[in-house]
Simulated scan of single mutants.
Amino acid sequence: MSELIVIGYDGHEVATKAFKAVQALRDDHVVELKGLAVVRVDQDGDTHVDTPARREEIALSATAGALWGMVLGILVLTPGIGVVGAALGGIIGKLTQMGVDNGFRKKVSDLLEPGSAAVVILASKITEDRFAAAMEPFGGTVLKTSLPEESERELAEQLAGPAPEATG
């Protein structure tokens, strides 16, 4: 099971410091990451997503990378989806089953007002007490949901598309 954690801050500077703290926690094996990003909203309301630098980038399989990108995109970059295509609708449906429903997305959207920022973490393993103690000095508003492993696998398969048929 993975944990999706969004920590909202009033400004980009403190979010960047918290982001670096999460990277240090990864290095100390307090958290195993599947994805990490800082999302900031500028004064014009435009959303910007920063991920770890290339040399520090989390080693992700192509499928895990696609899953993280989809979760991040649906969570942050598409707050008010109206009519959607069948494929995207199915993926949003799967994310909803996993706990990333419109209510959770609305809470994230409410955190991300102009001038604010958030650290978005997708963790496969976390030592809760050590993580909380390390993040406490930064304050912020914490939103969290669990993503069952089986649902993640189904979503990854949905993102990858159908497996090619074996020819004999």
Rank of each mutant, 00 (worst) to 15 (best):
S2G: 05
S2F: 11
E3F: 07
L4F: 11
I7D: 02
G8S: 09
G11A: 10
E13Q: 10
A15W: 14
T16N: 08
T16P: 02
F19S: 00
V22Q: 00
L25Y: 08
H29Y: 12
V31M: 06
K34I: 05
G35K: 06
V39G: 06
R40S: 13
G45I: 09
T47C: 00
H48R: 07
D50Q: 12
D50T: 05
P52E: 01
R54G: 01
E56Q: 05
I58H: 09
A66Y: 09
M70G: 08
V71G: 02
L72S: 11
L72V: 15
V76M: 07
L77D: 03
T78D: 15
V83F: 12
V84Q: 11
L88G: 05
G89W: 07
G90W: 12
K94R: 10
G99E: 06
V100D: 00
V100W: 00
R105M: 02
R105S: 00
K106W: 08
K106A: 01
S109F: 06
L111F: 04
E113L: 01
P114M: 01
V119K: 03
V119S: 02
I121S: 06
A123E: 07
S124A: 06
K125C: 12
K125G: 04
I126M: 01
I126A: 05
T127P: 00
E128S: 10
R130W: 07
R130N: 08
F131M: 02
A133Q: 07
A134V: 03
M135H: 07
F138D: 03
G139L: 09
K144D: 14
K144H: 14
K144G: 15
S146R: 11
L147D: 02
E150Q: 13
E152M: 14
A156Q: 09
L159K: 09
G161N: 14
G161W: 13
A166P: 02
A166H: 14
